[in-house]
Design a protein around this nucleic acid. Structure first.
Lengths: 143, 143
DNA sequence: CTTGACCTTCCGGTTACTGGAACCGCCAGA
DNA sequence: TCTGGCGGTTCCAGTAACCGGAAGGTCAAG
């Protein structure tokens, strides 16, 4: 299989597949012409990666999970530990976002949103009215 | 005021403040020795930025909000529009994370987490058992 | 033989910083 | 006067996980 086929079948862009090879997540063979030649097992791994990524696992988590996936003598506790750690991160993130949402929706609700300049949103940002402990500055929240 | 003072008073690292000058969010004066010299107005802007960032606004949103903050003849509707757009993004993100959380917690619950290799988590990632429409691959979810 | 769809590598850009190197300014103490 | 130490400065590289595009090689069809 060439890259376009696995891209379609795995749902990952060809660019991403090349990147995954670059960072050592997969090791497809090469044909005589230099093209990547994917086996069924490569496709399985890519599909695995696509699903793990869609659940929000980091690339490094994916690397770990893939190694466990390949290791027929793994302990399921190892897998579970990775998944639970990730679940905690997700929960934290949700809590953080909900705090933002709460604060911001209060501000938005109190803003007339008309042609006048008076704006409680800007006022709230300007004075320290809502310093909200627990809201990290480096919050990288939304895309 | 030198940079360390505004850093302490605004809660932003000095590095970040230099960065904000770099990208044109603030324009502090310079002393004869080349040091940045911050006015009270610079400090206000930095505090504003710190709070806007803590609510998850992007730098570009912050730029817009700061311009509105400075513009005494703004319409509050403009501010509200930016805030509401951001609120939508937050809500989407929360929904996405909750979908991940739901799927993953099911998998985790069904995993024995013992020394045996059988693992429903890996099985779920391996076959397409939980393709979950709506879960984007490029989900950049957690830190 | 040419066209067009594929494939390849490499480079740069994205977001919002952070860390570090190398260097300069300023003040206090020995 | 020299030295230390804590400021300050710039610039470069790296982070996560890719995406876009350029320049060029390959292959099957017409």
């Amino acid at each position: 299989m060439n890259i376009k086929d696995v891209a379609e079948r795995s749902g990952l862009p060809a660019k991403t597949i090349r990147y995954y090879e670059d960072i050592g997540l997969i090791r497809p063979l090469r044909s005589a012409n230099g093209y990547r030649s994917f086996r069924e097992s490569d496709l399985h791994k890519l599909a695995f990666l696509a699903r793990a990524r869609s659940l929000g696992f980091s690339i490094e988590d994916c690397r770990t999970l893939l190694a466990l996936y390949e290791d027929r003598s793994r302990a399921s506790s190892d897998v579970k530990a990775v998944a639970e750690a990730h679940l905690h991160k997700i929960a934290e993130k949700i809590a953080e976002l909900r705090a933002m949402e709460a604060t911001l929706s209060h501000l938005v609700q109190s803003c007339a949103g008309d042609g006048r300049p008076d704006c409680p949103i800007l006022a709230g940002l300007g004075d320290g009215a809502k310093p909200q402990a627990g809201l990290a500055v480096a919050a990288e929240c939304c895309s």
